[in-house]
Design a protein around this nucleic acid. Sequence first.
DNA 1: AAGCCGGGGTA
DNA 2: TACCCAGGCTT
Length: 358
Amino acid sequence: MAAASRRPIAPSLLAWAGQHGRHDLPWQKPATPYRVWVSEIMLQQTRVDTVIPYFERFMARFPRLTLLGKAGLEEILVLWSGLGYYARARHLHATARLCLEVHRGLLPATLDELMRLPGIGRSTAGAIMALGHGLRATILDGNAKRVLARYHAVAGPPDTAEIRRRLWSLAERETPREQVAAYTQAIMDLGATLCTRARPSCSSCPLAQNCAARTTGRQAHYPGKRPANAKPCRERWFAWIERDNAVLFEQRPPVGIWGGLLCLPEIPPQMDPGEWCNARLGFAAGKAEELPGFQHEFTHFRLRARIASCHGLAANIGDHIPGRWLGTENADLAALPTPIRRYLKARLAERQSRSTGR
DNA sequence: AAGCCGGGGTA
DNA sequence: TACCCAGGCTT
């Protein structure tokens, strides 16, 4: 097969990375297993520029694994708020506790042990091994997939079993015996800075001479695309309940969208908002008034959020209501999903300007 | 194997 | 608007 006979990429890649690689990323100084692990979890499906401020805040609060293992999930979710994929925060918490309980307070240094921990799959385990422990292991993240698919002309969508198997095989074959950490960082740097998805900078690429995609002029054909499926639209009602300049929030269930975060109470589908107020808050409610809502795009569906105001009823709400009251003074420190935070701030600001404007 | 899970940058 | 990003988990 042509792929097997193609020249190894490690030597050219390492030489290039010494000059042009990224050497000042926050998790590289120092690149401890703990810092590499946290960064890798944050970086799952998330761009470097997005992650950096979250990583800095996280490390300022939890500089060591021991501190994280003793923390509550709530505080971790506050630091994760806005980053998305909130199951990652839950898994991070669970893994930190497991490390304290069964790994003597350290991240394991074998691939199998790492992969048994929540939130750590094959690629993340490989990254922790190579970048954190300096041990030989292989990654296959989005960058490596793109570089390898182009260099070896692997056509087809990478999320099928066959292509995934071939790419992993190539990735392991290309991983050198020495300088594994530098190589691992180098292939990601190349993918992120030169071998980009759109308009790759082949003229500067150290692998261009032997790149199958480059020599055939078909860079844009690799990696293959998966067929897009239709994005459904979900309509959901949320309750807006005010009292004393604060709004009622409740914690969402740990699984599902926005798992574990605080949110405006969601009214179950098919249920009338007034009826819900009655059942949930324990008093007779009239017909709820609809406030302006919002739309939000997710990866796999579109949310049309409609807001039912129970404002007129709020005076009757007692302290027994399960939930959290958020206002301008404490909303910033709460674990809120981004669109809900945006909506809350907009409405609070709107009310503020109305009360001071006349 | 396919669906689920966020938010934002980019074309 | 559509795609995809330092993927992993669940069914």
